[in-house]
Design a protein around this nucleic acid. Sequence first.
DNA 1: TAGGTTAGTTCCATTATTTGAAACCTATTT
DNA 2: AAATAGGTTTCAAATAATGGAACTAACCTA
Lengths: 269, 269
Amino acid sequence: MVARPASDGTVAKALDVLDLVASFGRPVRFSDVLEQSSFPKATLYRLLQTLVSQGMLAFDADRSCYTMGIRLVRLAHVAWAQSSLAPIARPHLDRLSAQVGETVHLAQLDHAQVLYVDKRNARMPIPMYSQAGKVGPAYCTGVGKAMLAYLPEGQLPAILAQQSWHRFTPKTLTSPDALQKELAAIRARGFALDDEEHEPGIICVALPVMTSGGAVLGALSVTSTTSHTDLDALCAYAPLIRDIARTIAQETETWRFPEEDAHSTRKRA
Amino acid sequence: MVARPASDGTVAKALDVLDLVASFGRPVRFSDVLEQSSFPKATLYRLLQTLVSQGMLAFDADRSCYTMGIRLVRLAHVAWAQSSLAPIARPHLDRLSAQVGETVHLAQLDHAQVLYVDKRNARMPIPMYSQAGKVGPAYCTGVGKAMLAYLPEGQLPAILAQQSWHRFTPKTLTSPDALQKELAAIRARGFALDDEEHEPGIICVALPVMTSGGAVLGALSVTSTTSHTDLDALCAYAPLIRDIARTIAQETETWRFPEEDAHSTRKRA
DNA sequence: TAGGTTAGTTCCATTATTTGAAACCTATTT
DNA sequence: AAATAGGTTTCAAATAATGGAACTAACCTA
């Protein structure tokens, strides 16, 4: 319902601009941004200036274009280090990656979408959409379906309502009903599969990372290509992934910020 | 000069709050933030609310505390991926780390300070201040001095004026004059050394990463402890570091965004 | 359990910032 | 020399932010 807070908050607008610039994934000139933005020229101009002077964006005078600022990079590290799963999961992702030699993903739900939080490439990297920091659809990816299948009662409808149901490939499930059946199958089977539903030739096995209380923290997947292996073979990894997911979940619950003393060191100069 | 833009921009204030929350490095309650902040209660409250509703912060209702938001995490990745040096340097850092077995840093200048952009731990990790995403002083760290020494004419005075000149150890250089001499020595020698100037027992060799045009992009360092080795031994790594720095710089110049097509895929749903 | 203390939230008249159409630059192009 | 594109500044009107104080909820404390 909070779709577009319309004329609310200057901060919101500035952040929208930040997102917009980020979405280009490359340095952009003023006019590039203007074209994509719904703000009037003068307003956009000032918002960009603010972001630059705040260090969230940087302006390269030589090429007269905007890039991500160094302050954002700094926040980036803090954010990543705290996005509970990522730092805890890191060594386990390494382990999983080493054992299976395939592409490995760690994802979390971001609104109704999948946010790839971390990734390890296969020994022989394969080109694909996913990338740490990118968001992808939930209804047609392994990690997405794994999380949806184990979501607490009642949360699912709202999320389904926000899916785009775009048919990426002939195998994409494009309706809530079809997906509901698939989710039931996932629960019965104990893990999720992506059978080229998002990208042709890309397949994966995925399992959710869940607390003992049943909360879905994220999901792990092992991804490969049809030219290299098949779903049956990937299924064999499910138990290993489950073990690792369980370990990560346990550590999340145990750990919960062991470094309560860290701020004594940090006094600002 | 732009020390504290005082009563300028709501965006600035919101971002200050964001930084503040980030600086705790852990989930914080409202009152924790209030204590550290100069904003009145109501104002801070609303700023936090804005940040939460914008997804830059997340509010954990159970523990009633604020953490980094998922939107920030997402921006974080984009920022990191674009902070030109980091992604390009990554494999080279790995290589350097593997070859020397010591702690390795990649840093960039953030205003007048050093921002550690990436890091590899030594085979036997040693406790020290630096950490990816942290900022440190420029005048008394290896990477900082390496960058200052090769800064283009005219930029140095402004930066020196912003140093704190705090005496961290007996060996810290605490005046612009002393540092200027040291920088000349660095240029003569071709690389920078940190002889326990920031932390007792911590020493390092550092070299700048520079474009062929002479612009300072960042710096690389190999760090160790006096109990484990000495400066003379570290100096031996200088040529290797120089090679790697040069490679990184070259790739930065060649590369410059090879993925100009990436946005065709990304169309918003 | 009344009485107090802390922590978080809302109100609202005042104040300050943001807004954006249009005018204005300043290189480039025709 | 005139026109265009890309960027920057102005200024009165519109809008959003401010913060003191009042309020609520939860948790102590005696």
